[in-house]
Simulated scan of single mutants.
Amino acid sequence: MRIGELSRRTAVSERSLRYYEKQGLLAAERTPGGHREYPEKAVDRVVHIQELFAAGLCSAKIVELLPCMRDKDGGPSASATPWLVEELSVERARIDGMVEELLRARDVLDEVISAASGRVEA
C-alpha cells in the first residue's frame, strides 16, 4: 500500500510515517517510480509505534523494542528475550511513577476545589 493509504488506515500523518521510516521504525520498498510501498503488516507496526509513543517512550527505545514485540497473530517475535521483559518492566515502573504523581496532583486540586467551593457557598 502507498503512504496515503497507510496514513488513512492508521490515522497517522504522512509526515509522521516518513519520520518513522527515517528513525528506523518503519520500512518501505520503493516502486520503480520512487513511491513508498508498505506491506500489510505495516498497519499493525504503526499501531504499535503509536502505542509506545503514547506510553512515553522515545523513538530510540521503540527501535530497540519493536523487533521483540508480538506479531498480529499473537505469537511472540523470534527475537523476544528476557531483555525485553526487563526493558518493558523499567518503562512500566516509570509510567507507574507518573500515574502516582498525577493522582497526587489530582488530590491537591480536589482539596483546592473543595476549599474554594466552601468559600463560595458560605
Rank of each mutant, 00 (worst) to 15 (best):
P67A: 10
L17H: 02
A78H: 09
Y38N: 08
L65P: 05
V85N: 02
Y38L: 01
G118L: 11
I95D: 03
T10D: 03
R45K: 10
S59A: 13
V46I: 02
S16N: 09
S114P: 03
I95T: 12
A115C: 09
R15C: 00
M98Y: 14
R119P: 01
R36T: 09
Y20P: 00
S16V: 06
G97V: 09
R70H: 09
S114F: 13
L84K: 04
L25D: 04
L25K: 03
S7C: 04
A93T: 15
E87D: 06
D110N: 14
V63Y: 05
I3G: 05
A60Q: 01
R106M: 12
R2Y: 07
P67Q: 10
M1V: 05
R18P: 00
I62M: 00
A55Y: 06
A28T: 06
V99R: 13
A116C: 15
E111A: 13
V47R: 06
L102F: 13
D44M: 03
E51M: 10
G4A: 11
V112W: 01
S114H: 14
L17K: 02
S16A: 15
S13K: 03
G75C: 10
G4N: 02
R92Q: 14
S16T: 12
I49K: 01
L57E: 05
Y19G: 03
S13E: 03
R9D: 08
A122Y: 10
S77T: 04
P32E: 11
E101N: 14
W83L: 11
R2M: 03
V108A: 11
H48R: 15
P82D: 13
C68R: 00
E101Y: 04
K72R: 15
G33P: 04
D107L: 13
Y19T: 05
L17E: 04
E86N: 11
P67G: 00
D44T: 12
V120D: 06
V12E: 01
A54Q: 03
P39E: 10
L25T: 03
